[in-house]
Design a protein around this nucleic acid. Structure first.
Lengths: 199, 199, 199, 199
DNA sequence: TATGAATGAGCATTCATTCAT
DNA sequence: AATGAATGAATGCTCATTCAT
């Protein structure tokens, strides 16, 4: 097959994936609570039900794709902030806020991910990889802060790990309380981190 | 109705509730992954399907009852350790360990609780109540530690709140990684807390 | 459980089986060609879809039950004629006719049986049993005919076996020709058998 | 269109038909039980799915073509044996054996033919034609045998008809018993025919 | 109160066929 | 003629809940 039609095909596939991704998020957020029907996803994406199965073997695989893309998206955002040239303390606040607001925005989908046990579909190594990247961002911010003499000398690996866990736990508790106005919590938490890190 | 038969009735109801509670946990842990069927719960509890509906309006209410009882159980354990006469640092370790091991033991049920969105069935006030009691235990341990001059003078309310969040987050991450050997994590986390609290 | 309610239950089950049996035959003959839908069977039997599954694990098991009952019915008819006090040659004609007319009446169901490969569900021993009973009827008729000196002395076991095969093959060919007016063929075949058996 | 390109086209079509025929048999025997998918047939034949529809209007027509070709094949084999210069009794045995082994080899396809009711697609006249040719072979063998004074003087038309039916019925019963080791049955049956025909 | 048979809505997936390229 | 992605109708089975006994 010519390189051209190969490219065309790949582009088409990518476009379909993108449409299905967005349709899924749309359907999920629309039908709060219920699990999304394949037919609805297809319809929203503007394709036929059967066509979904040209791109994904089954529903779980489709949802896994969306889950993966979603996690990559938040990771990308975190990395962007980490790579920015804000001072370390502001980076820490900004990254924390990013995570909180992303989780709030997509909480219904993440609930779904648990319902379908999507975590079981992701290879362990890939999960650890993602986790380490997220934790790594915090470690880098800590290092920068120490270098900038804004933070005291903490052990960055462990500290970043626990900071990340605290964020996850706080979000989890807020979700359990069904309190989705998370910015106050995010701020309070950042203040706590900064007080811990201040020299 | 006579007071005697009233009592009898209450006793019977309590016995039924107890049997259903245990049957539910048994069925849930047996059928890893699948959601438990009312029929299976009834059969395991030694009653007829229809009888379940004399005690619980529907499946969600039944699961909510179990969920509530389970949370009360772990809270009771935490309180017991908190009320013991161990030194503060050992109490902290012990309470943390309790929470980890309880969540590991009942993780399948807690997954279920999210699937059925049981949190939506519990009144906000009750959820806050439970949460505050758990956090309160940590606050008391911190106070004791400060008094015993084992811990430095930290602000106990906020610190205990964040300690609890960190525990929740760590458990959540371990569950996501499907790494259910949590004792190492519990220890590491306690060490971190203690290093933070040390004078 | 008391013997009475046990009996009641059994009677109810038998009634349900009977109703489902008849509903299936009705639906099958009505919807010539298409495979019967569980919903239609249930509706025709006057019960709910789900109720079918209280009596049969799945569609194949239901059809196997009907298939079995159908074969028992024709076998019973053959046995009745065999046990009658007609002269041997008339018995032979009558039994042959029974088989032809039964297969014509239920040909659509028997086609279905092949479609669902019901033969694979019947234990080999049971199939051989049924086959031997049918062949046995012919053998008995042959013996009688020989005794009555209406037939010459043929080896009854083999002869009856091949007579039965010839009937089956003739029916099969008529079905293939889609010629369902089988009485002519049945008569012609019987004449051939009798000419072979005449002294 | 020029005669040359006409010929070319016909040749191409014939090649395609041949490839599809063989692919179908391959797929059918591979996927025991399931009905063959058009996609699999196309893939196995080395063409695209849509291309199948340039040669056959639909699946039933494709299967009818294969069915027809298969019946022609066995008929050809029977005719070859009939036209050979074996003695009549050996011809009878050989033809019988041919039919048994052919039906065993292609039993899955023949089951399929019933499932798709292919018989309904073949004109009555054509079916009778094929049937008469098969029966005719037996009649010719009988005639020869009588002439060779190996067989007694039987009425060849009816006898050949019933012999053929007996073969069909025996194969049908063996298939129902799922006993595909048919050579013993074929032998036993031929012995019976010969004993009937012996002078 | 207890029983447990009956109810029936709900949904992922397949695959023959089409048609734009 | 060839391609193969897109189409979309069609259906068996589950299981929470009810209700006659």
């Amino acid at each position: 097959m010519s390189s051209f039609s190969e490219k065309q095909k790949q582009f088409k596939e990518q476009a379909a994936h993108e449409a299905i991704y967005e349709a899924t998020l749309k359907v999920v957020s629309r039908q709060q609570g219920d699990t999304p029907k394949m037919q609805d996803i297809a319809e929203t994406a503007g394709i036929a039900t059967g066509t979904l199965y040209n791109y994904f073997k089954n529903k779980v695989e489709l949802l896994t794709f969306v889950d993966d893309k979603l996690r990559q998206t938040v990771l990308k955002k975190i990395k962007q902030v980490t790579a920015s040239n804000l001072p370390a303390d502001e980076k820490l606040r900004s990254v924390t806020m990013e995570i909180f607001s992303f989780c709030r925005a997509h909480r219904i989908f993440f609930d779904l991910a648990e319902q379908f046990d999507l975590k079981a579909r992701i290879p362990r190594i890939q999960k650890e990889n993602g986790l380490n990247q997220a934790r790594g961002c915090f470690a880098r911010i800590l290092s920068e802060g120490i270098q900038q003499q804004r933070f005291r000398q903490v052990e960055t690996t462990m500290t970043s790990k626990h900071i990340f866990s605290t964020i996850v736990g706080t979000i989890e508790i807020q979700k359990w309380l069904q309190d989705y106005e998370m910015s106050k919590e995010a701020d309070e938490l950042t203040d706590f981190f900064l007080s811990y890190l201040k020299m």
